[in-house]
Amino acid sequence: MRWIIKLDNGLAWLSTFCGWVACAAMILMAGNVFYDVFTRYVLNDVSIGMQEMEWHLYSVVFLLGIPYALRTDGHVRVDVLYARWSDKTKAWINLIGAIIFIIPFSYLIWKYGYAFAVESFSMGEGSADPGGLPHRWIIKSVIPISAVFTGIAGLNMATQALRVMSGEKTYEAKHGAEGLA
């Protein structure tokens, strides 16, 4: 049991790390869009590179946000029955769901996303538009990276479920808008 707790905490740390990167990207993105509007309207200047940076950052926000939201149980559930179930039943649902849904799904996205990014890297792909960003593979590789971390967060969901089953931990009212002010 001790090692499961350790593993659980370690995996949770990885998801939190993803969240940290996504949060930073979020603030940068808001600033980026504002800056682009400002330079275009006030200074009459446009940079397609900066415009492309917007969707690069926005992609990081949601792709790395997904594992983070998994750890904080921020993904919406249909709770018609779920809310009434005991922690133990919930743990079973989460354990099985993580193993048959999240981990295989993440695996496939990782597998094909990796090939997708490698192809882009091998061609030296960049933007086709004037002043656009080079190195398209960087943003494409966020897809498999996100999949790896989502898979890890899935594993984490399983370890958490095991802790709950053993009675060492509870789910509290930990779903939906947990963490929102």
Binding site: R40, N44, D45, V46, I48, A128, D129, P130, G131
Partner: peptide, 24 residues
């Protein structure tokens, strides 16, 4: 000069050379 135009690709580069701001 400084005209904001939706014009992608190589054609956009030509426009950019003469002062247009290609915009996405």
């Amino acid at each position: 000069q400084g005209l904001k135009m939706r014009i992608p690709g190589f054609q956009g580069e030509v426009f950019a050379e003469v002062g247009v701001n290609p915009t996405n």
